[in-house]
């Protein structure tokens, strides 16, 4: 019980930290904390496989992607600068709207019975035991038999994502669109175009 509350406070604090920092690197650190706390929460909910997935995929891959992009964008240009704020004080309506939504949501959640009616076959057991609810075997069986379609769909989505990234962020136009000073700056920073690995 206390574990839940501690984790909950850490979760919210890291989320707020992520959203409110000026520097993206600090935000990344906050996000990392958030993911780790979330993984811990998953473990308390018997979802051990998902907890591992959370750590490996989210904090291991996606966050790294963020870090690399931060590096990519900030190199050669200087620290992140921002133009004039064209929508000042937008926090007020934003917070207001979210508070309203949260209020209604809380009202809805608290007044709706959330308990299920049909029990399920798989059995609960402590985390770490084989073949219990939430274990790797349980997840794998479901993924490759009953829920095969989502599995195939995820593969498809990932392929589309890779193609999209390559198209979008790859070098569409070579050197002639870059100024000489930029070129030398990039060269000095050791930066290579993403696609042309052979150069």
């Amino acid at each position: 019980m206390t574990a839940f509350y501690v984790l909950a406070i850490l979760l919210i604090a890291s989320a707020v930290f992520t959203v409110t920092q000026k520097s993206p690197v600090y935000s990344v650190v906050g996000l990392l904390t958030n993911f780790l706390v979330l993984a811990a929460l998953y473990f308390t909910l018997n979802a051990e496989f998902l907890g591992i997935i959370q750590i490996v995929v989210y904090s291991g891959a996606i966050l790294m992607l963020f870090v690399f992009v931060i590096a990519l964008l900030s190199s050669g240009i200087g620290p992140f600068s921002e133009g004039p704020n064209r929508l000042p004080r937008v926090a007020i309506p934003a917070v207001l709207a979210t508070l309203v939504a949260f209020g209604f949501l809380a009202f809805g959640v608290l007044h709706t019975p959330l308990a299920p009616t049909t029990p399920h076959a798989a059995s609960l057991g402590p985390v770490g035991t084989a073949n219990v609810f939430g274990s790797v075997a349980d997840f794998g069986v479901a993924l490759f038999t009953v829920q095969l379609l989502p599995f195939e769909v995820t593969a498809f989505i990932l392929m589309v994502a890779v193609i999209g990234v390559v198209l979008l962020a790859g070098d569409a136009s070579p050197q002639k669109t870059r100024g000489s000073h930029e070129k030398s700056a990039l060269k000095s920073a050791g930066r290579e175009p993403i696609v042309k690995a052979g150069r």
């Binding site: 709207a97 939504a101 209604f104 809805g108």
Partner: peptide, 11 residues
């Protein structure tokens, strides 16, 4: 808009 939807469905 989402807040409106949430409000509607909550009620």
């Amino acid at each position: 808009g989402a807040a409106c939807f949430i409000a509607y469905f909550a009620v």
